[in-house]
Amino acid sequence: MATIAKTFDREALDTGSLDVRPMTPAIGAEIHGIDLGASNIADSIPAIRSALLKYGVIFFREQDLTQDQHIAFARHFGELEIHPATPKDQPNPEVLRIAHGPKSRGQENNWHSDVTWRECPSLGSILLAREIPPVGGDTLFANMHLAYERLSPKMQEFCQGLTAVHDIARVFAKRLGKAPEDLHDKYPPMRHPVIRTHPETGERAIYVNNGFTSHIEGLAPEESRWLLDHLYKTAWDVEIQCRFRWQPGSIAFWDNRVCQHLAVSDYFPARRVMERVTIAGDKPFFKPD
């Protein structure tokens, strides 16, 4: 586990000579004038990592990457994980292809963090647009640290002591055509703090999501449902969001430890094809004062 900063000065993060253009005061920045497939990209990795921590999600345009280049760029940030929805016979199992069209309506149109059903959910994902619809198909991102900061002090204090259960079967039992118990053999439900501490910045963020969180331990079912609904809705605040309009070759790289995202499915029946490479993370924890 990385050493947590005692104090985190977001403005002091060094993004070097990168051409960084913030999208909103709350979250997101586009980075221009860089080729992520360049042979010397390693020289820019510290600055890119600083930008990721500073803005939560960073975007790049006109990136003509092969799958091998996509994977190589992601490896600069850590070990990669393989998603269970990835076909076993494809040549690059690290690449999750997300394709929708006339026979497949997009299903990622709810606020969520990726793979929170893992013991060690992802650090972040790098999503590359291969084919986009003529209009629509944007992705929204929400800063869940700011969502936490906007809770009342009493609610913050109450949530800090709670643990939630995250279950892969809530989403992928139907999508993969498997019984929940079969998925649980390999991916049992996981317990994570409702409020997690970011392992690099020390900031706190809400860490439950509508996709994978099943319940909060120790609360009556009605209490758990009410509190989860309340926390889910914090991501809906437009003042903690940014919205990204895709172009072919665009990339979004988000910090899954502090962001939630929603892929708008307004483009049906047009086609939208994305490829995602995901960086493994560490086990979520809450660090008290």
Rank of each mutant, 00 (worst) to 15 (best):
H83I: 06
H83M: 11
L228Q: 02
L176T: 04
L53I: 07
I240H: 04
F77P: 04
L262Q: 10
C259S: 14
P91E: 14
P193S: 13
N110D: 15
L146A: 12
I126G: 08
E81M: 15
N92M: 10
P102W: 07
M144F: 08
K174W: 04
P84I: 01
Y187A: 09
F212D: 03
R271M: 12
D35V: 06
I41S: 12
V135T: 12
V115N: 04
I45W: 02
Q160S: 14
R21K: 15
P87H: 07
D64M: 05
K6M: 02
A263C: 07
I4G: 01
L183W: 02
H230T: 09
G106K: 08
A173M: 01
P22L: 13
E30P: 03
M23Y: 11
L231R: 01
Q69V: 03
E81T: 11
K154W: 11
P269L: 08
D19Y: 09
A99Y: 11
W246P: 11
R272N: 05
S214R: 01
S122Y: 01
G101S: 09
D282L: 00
D35K: 11
D68I: 11
G101E: 06
H184D: 06
T15P: 14
S224C: 10
M1V: 00
V258Q: 06
A169L: 00
Y55S: 08
G211T: 01
W111R: 04
R191H: 10
R118I: 00
E119C: 04
E79Q: 14
K174M: 10
A74M: 09
E157T: 13
V277A: 12
L18P: 05
E11S: 15
D185W: 12
L227P: 14
V57N: 05
N209P: 04
G249Y: 04
L96I: 05
E62L: 07
G56R: 05
E239P: 04
A164F: 00
L231G: 01
T201F: 00
M155L: 15
V57A: 15
P269N: 11
E157L: 14
G37F: 04
P248Q: 10
Q67H: 15
F77L: 14
C120T: 12
D19Q: 15
R105W: 05
W254D: 03
T201R: 00
I251A: 10
P248V: 06
P93M: 08
L96C: 10
D89W: 12
L231S: 01
V57G: 03
K287M: 05
S39M: 09
V95K: 14
L228W: 01
E223H: 13
Q107H: 15
A99K: 14
R150W: 10
K6R: 13
I4T: 08
G218F: 00
H112C: 04
R272H: 03
H192R: 00
L146M: 13
L162D: 07
A38V: 03
P134R: 14
R150Y: 12
R276M: 08
H184R: 11
V165C: 02
A164R: 00
T15R: 08
A74G: 10
